[in-house]
């Protein structure tokens, strides 16, 4: 499906008559990419849906102030990442458990998925990803699944490219070790 250009969508959004139509266009264009990014971080579909709805509500409220010198795509990923991490942080506080318990909670969510198959490598990889520290988890999924260039990732996560490369390197090594030992 062919989606309108970002500039065109932003221009339409600023016209009060086309505001809602333009916003629906933005949702349609980015919903799948953002959903899978959020889903890989929070694992559960219902949680991903809640987070994604909050992301688009924030986008609606803040789009008037969006500076067009940065890409809409990068800006949306930034909001989606922050919203996902905030969601995980809130879950941690609500259950009053340590970070490692939240990670094991995410692993349990992976296992609880109705399509989970412990013998399949793609599921083992998901379990390996959930063992990673938060930052490495985000960097790994953005690079491995979204194939995001380090330059863009640097703008999304506000981190230097060197630090991102190091995080990705550590994440890959840890995942290799995890899968070989499980």
């Amino acid at each position: 499906m062919q989606h309108p250009d970002d500039r065109e969508l932003l221009y339409l959004f600023k016209q009060s008559d086309h505001r809602e139509k333009a916003f629906t266009g933005i949702i349609k264009k980015y919903q799948e990419k953002l959903y899978w990014h959020v889903r890989r971080l929070v694992v559960d579909h219902d949680d991903a849906n809640d987070v994604l709805q909050n992301v688009f509500i924030k986008v609606w409220n803040a789009l008037d102030n969006f500076r067009e010198d940065s890409q809409l795509y990068t800006w949306l990923y930034r909001i989606a990442t922050n919203e996902s991490l905030t969601f995980l942080e809130q879950q941690k506080k609500r259950s009053a458990v340590s970070l490692s318990d939240v990670e094991s909670g995410l692993s349990n969510k992976v296992i609880a998925d109705k399509h989970f198959d412990a013998n399949k490598l793609e599921w083992k990889l998901q379990l390996g990803i959930q063992q990673l520290p938060e930052k490495q988890r985000v960097v790994f999924t953005l690079r491995y699944y979204d194939e995001m260039p380090y330059e863009e990732m640097s703008r999304v996560l506000d981190t230097s490219e060197g630090a991102l490369k190091a995080s990705y390197h550590h994440a890959v090594k840890k995942i290799e070790e995890f899968i070989k030992n499980h």
Partner: peptide
């Protein structure tokens, strides 16, 4: 270069979602 083992793993994630979800999301947000 980092790990030939991980490079050989599937590049697709195993999660699934109903196809109808994409049609209802925009209306839900609105």
């Amino acid at each position: 270069e980092i790990s030939a083992f991980v490079a050989g793993l599937p590049s697709q994630h195993p999660y699934q979602v109903d196809a109808s979800y994409w049609d209802t999301l925009a209306a839900g947000v609105a």
